[in-house]
Amino acid sequence: MSVESHQKIDTMKLDSIMAQYNYDKANLIAILQAVQAEFKYLPEDAIIYIGTKIEGLSPATVYGVATFYAQFSLEPKGKYEIKCCDGTACHVRGSMPVLNAIKSRLKLKDGQMTTDDGMFSVETVSCLGACGLAPVVVINEKVYPQMTSDAVKIVLDTLMSEGK
């Protein structure tokens, strides 16, 4: 890890989060959730810092936990976090055409999650429990029910013009 990147991470913030959870390793998941809420992702330096500061943990263990759970991202997410539900109900009612429409509107290449300008990131999630409204797309906690490829494009266009 370079000295330069170490300076970028706000260790004061990390310490205050860990203090909130008593530096207890049983609270590791909650700590990582709080860190991700703060930084929008889990920076590598944060993982190392937490792993060295909490008793009974190592950076490798923290990394293991961070990569195990789907909620954690090691890469920065967009300003607008798009979650496209691909649970069974959504899948049967056509979530894949919606996802494809999102990707094509945002000009995302295969495997690319976040747009180049950092405005949008897209992921599929397995079920948001809003199956009665399938297919569902959630953007920054707001639920958009009964999406179609055309409707989702309108939603994205609106967000793009707001974002500018």
Partner: peptide, 10 residues
């Protein structure tokens, strides 16, 4: 409740 398509517990 992880089963996609179930939301009773929720």
């Amino acid at each position: 409740e992880g089963d996609p398509g179930a939301f009773m517990d929720r």
